[in-house]
Write a protein that binds this DNA or RNA. Sequence first.
RNA 1: GCGGCCGUCGUCUAGCCUGGAAGGACGCUGGCCUUCCGAGCCAGCGGUCCCGGGUUCAAAUCCCGGCGGCCGCACCA
Length: 495
Amino acid sequence: MESEAGEAVSRRFDDVIRLALERGFFMPASEIYGDAPAGFWDYGPLGVALRRKFIELWRRELVKRDGMLEIDGAQILSKSVFKASGHLESFVDPIARCSRCKAIYRVDKLIEEKTGIHVPERLDLGEMRRIVKERGIRCPSCGAKLADFAHFNMMFRVGVGAAGSDAYLRPETCQNIFVDFMRIYKTMRGKLPLAIAQFGKSFRNEISPRQGLLRMREFYQAEIEVFFNPNRANEFPKAEAVMDYALRLQPVGEDKPLEVSCREALDRGLVSSKLIAYYLALIQQFYEKAGIPRNRIRLRELDPDEKAFYAVEAWDLEVETSLGWIELVACNNRGDHDLGGHQKASGHEMEVLDGSERVLPHVFELSMGVDRSIYCILESSLATSNGKTVLKLPPYLAPIDVAVLPLISKEPLTSKAREIYDALKLEFDAVYDESGSIGRRYVRYDEVGVPVCVTVDHQSLEDDSVTVRFRDTAHQLRIDLDEVAGFIRGYLAYP
RNA sequence: GCGGCCGUCGUCUAGCCUGGAAGGACGCUGGCCUUCCGAGCCAGCGGUCCCGGGUUCAAAUCCCGGCGGCCGCACCA
């Protein structure tokens, strides 16, 4: 892929990484040591602030808007949890190693490739070994015998306590929600449909992590699990509010997204229920408010081969970037896989009363990749103006709200500016800066997306006014000092 | 995990082929100057040349191994 587009692609990705490294958004973990494993990243000060604001927007647009309950679960969970969830068995790849050149292969894929026989991933290893032997399948690169048949599980195993009992770092945050469901339902006086949300870390031992924040071994998810009565997924009054909202749906068989209202999507049977249409609308609206242009968002239906082992209906919210379409949110109808599995394995009742009906709730999830979202927001906000970088984040996502600057670095302008900074710093994420020319400082803050700068000049000393300078236009406005806080508050307001 | 390319101050890079004092630009810090968009001047800061081993009088440079990055394949539960 050496086309012009291909080159532009890598340049744009590189621009984001360069900005991130240079200005402290994020950096490789364990960076100063040579044995730093791939797939682990540290967030720096600006990255933390951006992520915090992104999550605050998520709380506002999804959790609060919909009256969801938020929890914060443990990252290490018992082996039994993953036995019941299916991850211990299904979260694995069957692999084998060449006895001579040591290359590692996916056995199921290799058999399929060589013989055309479809091999279920979960087929017994002995069975796979038998097929390989019978069909005389050998190492594709050197022709030697295959050996060391094994399951590679992508969960990180940890030893708990002195005995080192097996437990696992969660590969998805939602298992806490399923395990805790009954207690939350009871103690919070729950009623179906009930949505429980969680923001936190997950861990997957990726074979080959790559592309910065896009595929990590330790990463943030913001997940929402909606528990509902499958017989009543169309009795959903809240959905009326979004019936005219246009989804960008790409059902199986389409090669580009269709603009269809929720109503039309339901009428045409593209989406299976009002409940699902409603949540697809909420998540798409959320990304529009996070600053991703609508025409770069799509909700793509997964065909059966692509779906996770637990999914019965699956839509991915994807965003188009210079690297292609990136999956940011998995919207899965998980059916009763989870509560059913935990009910059976734990012996704990998971059925609840919905009216007079006794029902094992089904689950629709919105599983968001936070770090990937941060990358996409950075990339889509990155603009160039007169050869200079301007990060055009929505103001309410900007890591720094306001920079307070004396026009020149000289008393009494500096003292005056410091007073203003002190008055703003508790309410806002503010910085004070007197280093370098005023133009240099504007550029410095444009580059990290600060939406407004407050500048103290000679006139400020006479009449207690300041100028407010806007990142996106470089225009300035003079306002009275006692209106500054209110003005910034208004400018940073959510849409 | 395989294959190709690659790894030098915070960032970008010169130097590597042909072994011989790690240099520049931007940035950052302090000062002077400066009343609005990367100004100027002065003085500074900043590098385990990815790591380990080998060859050599001498290694950023050559060789081997590892780690990491990008791209392609595979994978993405």
